[in-house]
Design a protein around this nucleic acid. Structure first.
Lengths: 253, 253
DNA sequence: AACTATAATTATGCAAACATTATGCAATCA
DNA sequence: TGATTGCATAATGTTTGCATAATTATAGTT
């Protein structure tokens, strides 16, 4: 479905702010269809955890929960290791295909195109999942990668040095060799290194660099009351018990 | 949503035959609502992989693919081990809660109520996932358990001896002890044993006991042509390249 | 001036009607 | 007699409209 894919991309790549309301009539006008196909897309997205229906009120883009960064990496690591091991044992790996992925990744790094880098990385992992032939691993890898896109857009690319990006590609290449050799243990180690290098970058971004030891009273963290339509959205995200992050849309735009 | 949950239960517990068509107007009459809420439920179910939309034709209950039994167990094992380890390390385990699950399971086994046994098993694993505190593991455990319900209904309960069911409960208890002790390695071993015992039962059911060495010509496997509405459904499931199983509905009903 | 209550507006949830597509049957032609 | 084409029927996909619930604005009161 057209609307579904389009909205999904908008949400994943942070073209729509997490926590913001998705007005059905506005979307209907934008996509030039009636409200029904819009609702269908929103239903699908809610199943993927990308939007959240507030009954009889509105639908919001699911807040990005930075509390879950650790969960995300734990789970991505487990799934990736399983996929790498299974792909290595499958004997179905095709060197040309694997290295075409790496070429794409290398080109993206050279061009410095962050979106392409992430897309290439994900395409590579999805390819490994397909090689594994395990439909559940495929499905879960799909889901976890999608869940991480927004975090990576915000925290990876702002903190990854060019060296680290190049190194990541070389790790991909080494992993590919291990898989082509049919060596599950080496594949396991390689993919672990690869993922853990990414984790280190994200964690460096999440760790606060300013304000750790800064003395502070409640007045320092109080915010001016934002009224009207923005006030509505703020309340929705802030009321969450999790640490819902606010991407710096206002600050930048 | 009422319709969604109800349909989901019907599909999972094989009250609706895999591969059968879901007529929207018939469902609308059954649930005494219009087609719109029916379609919403079907959309949600398609996101969960339980139904499949055939564009401009109909919606069918997703065929159960027995080819995936191996994938299922591989993935369940990985996820369960991760969950058990994390739950053990969390230190949040509550003995009373854990053993209330085990009591429920034991009661279900004593009563010989197969549906209750499976529900209790799943509730136990979901509880461990909640203990792990990892929202991704929770989500994936949910999904994989749902995906396996139909297979277990068909293949586990028909082939599990009472002894094996009792033993499964004791394994649950040992796992619970390991988790309460905060021992991730022992929890890992215990949950692996538990899952692998289940696998053995399923595999025993899937392995053919008759017909391995039976001499056969093509006429022995030809089936009478089933015309009209049943013929339609047959084609849908049989055309799948996977081994779509046909639960013995006709044979029993 | 601030707070409360009521009214109006806006958006969602559902239903019914319309349009489009595919299937099945029948009729005609080879 | 068999196959192909056209029509009818049935089910899906979409639109439109209405009813309900929630939020906001306004007016009145303290």
């Amino acid at each position: 479905m057209q609307v579904h894919e389009s909205l999904r991309e908008d949400i994943l790549w942070l073209r729509i702010e997490p926590g913001s309301a998705l007005d059905e009539v506005a979307l209907a006008e934008r996509f030039e269809v009636s409200r029904t196909p819009i609702r269908e897309a929103l239903l699908l997205l809610s199943g993927e955890g990308l939007v959240k229906f507030l009954p009889n009120r509105t639908t919001i883009v699911a807040p990005m929960l930075m509390d879950n960064a650790g969960d995300y990496h734990d789970t991505l690591l487990i799934l990736s290791r399983s996929v790498a091991r299974t792909a290595a044992m499958s004997g179905r790996a095709d060197g040309d295909l694997l290295f075409s992925h790496i070429d794409r990744s290398r080109a993206a790094v050279r061009a410095g195109d962050m979106e392409s880098i992430l897309r290439a990385d994900h395409a590579f992992l999805r390819h490994l999942a397909a090689l594994s032939g395990n439909i559940f691993l495929e499905r879960f890898i799909d889901q976890i990668l999608d869940a991480g896109v927004r975090m990576y857009v915000l925290h990876y690319f702002r903190n990854a040095a060019p060296d680290e990006l190049h190194q990541s590609v070389e790790q991909m290449a080494e992993l590919s060799c291990a898989i082509l050799d049919g060596d599950p243990d080496r594949s396991d180690r390689r993919v672990s290194e690869m993922i853990q290098a990414d984790i280190a970058i994200i964690m460096r971004s999440l760790a606060p660099r300013v304000g750790q030891d800064m003395e502070m009273t409640s007045s320092h963290v109080a915010r001016p009351h934002v009224s009207n339509r923005n006030g509505f959205r703020r309340r929705l995200t802030r009321s969450s018990p999790d640490q819902a992050i606010e991407p710096p849309f206002q600050a930048e735009g």
